[in-house]
């Protein structure tokens, strides 16, 4: 019965049917890849070439822009007899501060996760409420913290006052303190994110290993360091990835809380790119693109590392 229908179907099996398994994935990929190519891959290339031009964003780059080669980069780094851009320097240093201090979210998250990893009544509500800051938009976090930091009337200044301390101009009005104030605001949701990663990780820790280690007399800090943290490695990796990316994407908070001020002391690269192109003080599109390329290259170091470790996992999985 089946043989007859098979032989009848054979001659009509078209080219598509014969190559179905080879073609189908490409058909399914086409719309996604196309979209992604137009909006993400191609713009990266375009920004690279834009960074070699001097262009004020008006008209077409071919007619209204001038090709200047590496001139924009020379200006950034002070090469070839140009004076180094001080604001770029500040942004770069601030980005470094962001990167290093943002990593505090990882141990911070682990600490809160360990504190909350219990089974008392109502603990689920506590866990969700601790996670709360991550769900809120960074714009709102920025606003909330800028009120928290208000000079004189802000809760933070009042609390400092209890210890007889005062930050001149308020946290965000003080060129030395402002960047740290913004980073602290960013750490709040980021720590919440790391916490939820570790809570999930702790849930999956092998109870038998913990019991075995307990029988061997391990406890407290030793247990944490030698038994628990090694098992949390996947969570730590993800926490590391999202924290690095978060640190380098720090645009929203800077823009909302200080707008780069006071005296440009809180600029970071992502904000400086925006300032040099789309803000009123900007319209130097080629120059802005060069800054963006530098930021991209910094990120590329991390992206390569992430992809490399994911590739190792893939090889194991095969």
């Amino acid at each position: 019965m089946s043989t007859s229908s098979d032989s009848a179907a054979l001659p009509t099996r078209g080219w598509y049917k014969r190559n179905e398994i080879a073609i189908t994935p490409w058909l399914f990929l086409a719309p996604g890849v196309l979209f992604f190519f137009i909006y993400v891959i191609a713009p990266i290339y375009q920004s690279f070439s834009l960074s070699l031009y001097d262009w004020n964003g008006l008209g077409d780059i071919e007619t209204n822009g001038t090709y200047v080669g590496m001139e924009n980069y020379n200006k950034l780094f002070g090469l070839n007899g140009e004076r180094a851009d001080r604001n770029f320097n500040i942004s770069l240093w601030n980005n470094l501060k962001w990167l290093l201090l943002y990593l505090l979210a990882i141990p911070g998250g682990l600490f809160i996760a360990l504190f909350l990893n219990q089974t008392v009544r109502g603990i689920r509500i506590y866990k969700s409420l601790f996670f709360f800051p991550f769900v809120i938009s960074q714009v709102v976090v920025g606003l909330v913290f800028s009120w928290f930091y208000l000079p004189n009337d802000g809760l933070f200044s009042i609390m400092l006052g209890w210890f007889g301390l005062e930050i001149r101009g308020g946290v965000l009005g003080n060129p030395t303190a402002a960047t740290y104030g913004i980073i602290a605001a960013g750490l709040w949701p980021q720590t919440a994110y790391c916490m939820i990663l570790y809570l999930t990780g702790l849930n999956a820790v092998d109870p038998e290993q913990v019991e075995a280690a307990r029988l061997d007399g391990a406890k407290g800090r030793k247990m944490l360091w030698y038994v628990i943290i090694p098992q949390l490695k996947p969570a730590t990796f993800i926490a590391f990835v999202v924290t690095i990316i978060g640190a380098l994407r720090s645009f929203d908070l800077v823009s909302i809380m200080t707008g780069g001020g006071p005296f440009g002391s809180t600029r970071v690269l992502s904000f400086y790119v925006f300032e040099k192109s789309l803000s009123e003080r900007g319209l130097q599109y080629g120059y802005a693109a060069a800054i963006a390329v530098v930021l991209f290259l910094i990120m590329l170091v991390f992206i390569s590392y992430f992809l490399w470790s994911m590739y190792q996992d893939e090889k194991e999985a095969r």
């Binding site: 909006y39 645009f251 992502s270 693109a289 800054i291 963006a292 930021l295």
Partner: peptide, 9 residues
Amino acid sequence: FVPFQILMV
């Protein structure tokens, strides 16, 4: 993972 700013313009 790319920074938004490189796509911006």
